[in-house]
Design a protein around this nucleic acid. Sequence first.
DNA 1: TAGATAATTAGATGTTTGTCTAATTATCTA
DNA 2: TAGATAATTAGACAAACATCTAATTATCTA
Lengths: 84, 84
Amino acid sequence: MNLIFKALNDPTRRAILDLLKEKDLMAGDIADHFEISKPSISHHLDLLKQAELVVALREGQFIKYSLNTTVMDELLKWLIKLKE
Amino acid sequence: MNLIFKALNDPTRRAILDLLKEKDLMAGDIADHFEISKPSISHHLDLLKQAELVVALREGQFIKYSLNTTVMDELLKWLIKLKE
DNA sequence: TAGATAATTAGATGTTTGTCTAATTATCTA
DNA sequence: TAGATAATTAGACAAACATCTAATTATCTA
């Protein structure tokens, strides 16, 4: 779960996930929501991708990012077990 | 939620939470479960305490740590909302 | 096929993090 | 009250991180 916790340990990356919850977005559209540079956003997207929290799919010139919540199941299970 | 994610973003700290799930423990007992130095464990406990994931209570010479799962509710809510 | 656009990769930099040893504080007990 | 034990705080250091600008790659279109 290291990669997931690492990915979630940043407010920008969590905000990206919140955006993608609403709908899939191109990398540029995501970047437009933040003050930081595009390469930085690209780096954040890479960490989210490493954690498999998002999936990237090229569509011609663009790359579409979408949320993948299945990897959260393990995390959720761990948290709930801790609460029991 | 910054402090919670920060606290959870370390395998040692997550292991400490798993230990405390079973029963309350003194700082020294916790340290005995790991290879790293006591001051390092103390630092980890401090971060967990800052996140309010654990509560510390002095009992004479010792300090007893116990799990506090209520702060996980917000986190759980966020995760579940993301999955909807 | 040349120029424009979308996005990533490379390389640099200041900050945060995890760890250590040494020093300090708090408590107990002979 | 002096010495021992439990735990933290202080200070240092290497590794990891977030960010930036510049360069590169991939694709589209006139």
